[in-house]
């Protein structure tokens, strides 16, 4: 029974993947390639002494931004077709539960993100090698952390698209949560500040735990402050964190999606 459900989830995921490719989501990679290769020439001129560093930093930031854009576009296209073009009616007439469908959708978007990020990372590393930059395993760990961060972003974006009545509103919420999620860590200043009342502290703690703490995944900003490799146990911990946050978002989303009138 469970094997059957898993097969159905995979079928939906594959369908989402095909749909995204059909809508030329991967074209975003061309823009990335132009940005990073063109940027490489400019960086050489503008940043003497720190060319290698700037190339790598710009590359990672581009991967993160384009990855986030890719997931937003994918979710937008899929959800738009589902609800505005009523595609979901056809899907749900088949023997497939809403939860399975939703999980498949999540998995499909994760796959398209993985595909995007892998190609972008490959391009960046190729450029780094051509520029004579010494590569190590840290570069791979950084990209893994970016992927985890974006998986969390997929989970909360899907939650917003289900909760909000308007697709655009959901996207805007998601965009702002992505930005604010990087500042969650700094809430601790307010929590630990003298003069913060106990009630305010409790409220801040609730916000701190509710909001996605995306700065935990930000290994690219730490690459020059550490010696050697990033600790694997930390990577494992953020993997658990990302998984649990995504699971919570998915459970809430599927519960809302079950009761949603289509």
């Amino acid at each position: 029974m469970e094997k059957k459900q898993f097969k159905k989830t995979l079928a939906v995921a594959q369908n989402v993947l095909n749909e995204c490719i059909r809508h030329k989501i991967l074209n975003i990679l061309f823009i990335f390639a132009i940005a990073i290769i063109g940027g490489n020439f400019i960086i050489k001129e503008l940043s003497p002494g720190a060319e290698h560093r700037t190339l790598i930093d710009a590359g990672y930031v581009n991967i993160e931004i384009f990855g986030f854009l890719a997931l937003l576009f994918s979710i937008f296209i899929i959800t738009y077709e589902e609800f505005e073009m009523r595609n979901i009616w056809i899907t749900l007439t088949k023997p497939i539960s809403r939860t399975t469908y939703f999980l498949g959708k999540f998995l499909g978007i994760c796959l398209i993100l993985f595909l995007n990020i892998s190609i972008m990372f490959f391009l960046l590393m190729l450029l780094a090698l051509l520029n004579g930059i010494n590569l190590n395993i840290n570069y791979l760990l950084i990209i893994a952390s970016i992927f985890l961060e974006l998986v969390v972003a997929i989970a909360f974006t899907l939650l917003f698209t289900v909760i909000s009545s308007n697709l655009i509103t959901g996207m805007i919420f998601s965009f702002f949560l992505f930005l604010i999620g990087h500042l969650t860590e700094h809430l601790k200043i307010l929590i630990n500040k003298e003069g913060t009342t106990p009630i305010l502290k409790i409220i801040l703690y609730i916000i701190y735990y509710l909001m996605p703490n995306l700065s935990l995944f930000n290994l690219k900003d730490k690459v020059y402050s550490i010696e050697g490799l990033f600790p694997f146990d930390y990577i494992l911990k953020i993997l658990i964190y990302a998984s649990l946050y995504s699971v919570i978002c998915l459970i809430i989303s599927s519960l809302v999606f079950k009761k949603k009138e289509i």
Partner: peptide, 11 residues
């Protein structure tokens, strides 16, 4: 900090 790319801003 908000965008999550401190080192690029420093670049």
């Amino acid at each position: 900090s908000m965008c999550g790319f401190k080192i690029l801003v420093s670049d």
